[in-house]
Simulated assay, not measured.
Amino acid sequence: MGNTKLFKRLKDIPFVYHSYLNLKNSINNALYTDYAFCRKTYKKTHGEYPNIDLPQTFSEKLLWSMFNHRDQVYIQCADKFEVRDYVKRKIGEEYLINSFGVFDHVDSIDFRSLPNQFVIKATHGSGWNIIVEDKDRENISNIRKRIRYWLKTNYFEFNREWPYKYMKKRVICEEFIGEERGTPPEDYKFFCFNGEPKLIQLDIGRFTSHKRNVYDTEWSRIGGVEIAHEQDENNIYPKPKNLKEMIDVARKLSEDFNHVRIDLYNVQGKVYFGEMTFFHGAGSAEYFRPKEFHLQLGEWFDLPSENINSWMRNDG
């Protein structure tokens, strides 16, 4: 059995997998400061160390922002529950996915009262999601174990993104808005700069053969570039009929920030808010190819102020 297959098998054993993650984080925390850890990760991803002092690429500017700028609203907007108030105020609650409740203890979740299909998300992390396709066929015990791990773990330890360090540990249960057989909806990610969407990343088959197509705001596919995954060259994904609405939503949600990625879903012509991300790929863990493309995104990114006297400038 190859290492990849073995790792996937271990992920299905919660105690073993969580013990592995705890050990990995403990070793990294002992060996690397936040700054050194991000430099090491960038080197592994891009093949060279980042120039954080004089950043040029998009990822270098993300790292500069991580280490030189703080704003409490980042914490609210990166939190999967707290951001709902921000979205409601900016664009209205009709864009929010229906919630069945938010919980800070796994024993507070009454699985019997939840519908047959639903989604569980950790509000204080990224990628900590469980799609329940058929509640009667799920291993609820394993789901509880995963949630318990989330609720006692600070996601900050994984990639050193400072907003996660200060979030309350909770999970939110939401309505499943994908296809009936459990396929999640396509994910539209709008890279916004100074309140203006400039690039759209379409995530395809996120839980199977993950690919990412890249489009401009007119829905012309930008060939020859990659964002951590190859593009799907074999299929045509039609321009959403309500693309203008999606762009308007992304514009309104991003207007207060130098840069933020706005993730949206489009299900049967209805737009739903997904999440807001300030440090794509934690600033160091996802590549952009070719380098000219990486530099182009960097040119769009006007850095925020270096708020040296910030309330947490020297924290971490």
Rank of each mutant, 00 (worst) to 15 (best):
E94Q: 14
H124L: 06
F273C: 10
D134G: 12
N159G: 02
L253Q: 01
N309M: 05
V267S: 07
I222R: 12
F193S: 01
N51I: 04
R221E: 12
V171W: 07
V87H: 05
E157T: 06
E306D: 14
N142D: 13
S209R: 04
N98S: 07
I204Y: 03
S305F: 05
Q56I: 14
L21N: 06
T183R: 04
R89V: 09
V271G: 05
I147E: 02
N142E: 08
D315R: 03
F288P: 01
G224R: 05
V119Q: 03
A250K: 01
F58H: 07
T4P: 00
L303K: 12
L202Y: 03
N309G: 14
E60W: 08
D136N: 14
M312K: 12
E186N: 15
V73R: 15
E133D: 10
H210S: 13
F288A: 03
E93T: 00
R181F: 01
A78Q: 08
L199Q: 02
C77M: 11
L96P: 12
K252F: 02
V214G: 04
T183A: 11
S59F: 09
G223N: 14
G182Q: 09
G127L: 07
F118M: 14
N139K: 14
N25Q: 12
R144A: 05
G223E: 13
V106K: 10
T217A: 08
L199P: 07
R206Y: 00
R39A: 05
F288E: 07
R39M: 09
N242H: 14
K198P: 05
L6S: 04
P240G: 08
F278H: 08
I140S: 06
N194D: 13
F156V: 03
W162Y: 12
K198D: 03
S209H: 08
I172V: 12
N234R: 13
S108H: 13
Y42K: 05
N142L: 08
G2N: 15
R148K: 11
M66D: 10
I143Y: 09
K24D: 08
K241E: 15
L62D: 01
R212V: 09
Y237N: 12
D85H: 01
K211S: 01
T183G: 03
N154S: 09
F278Q: 05
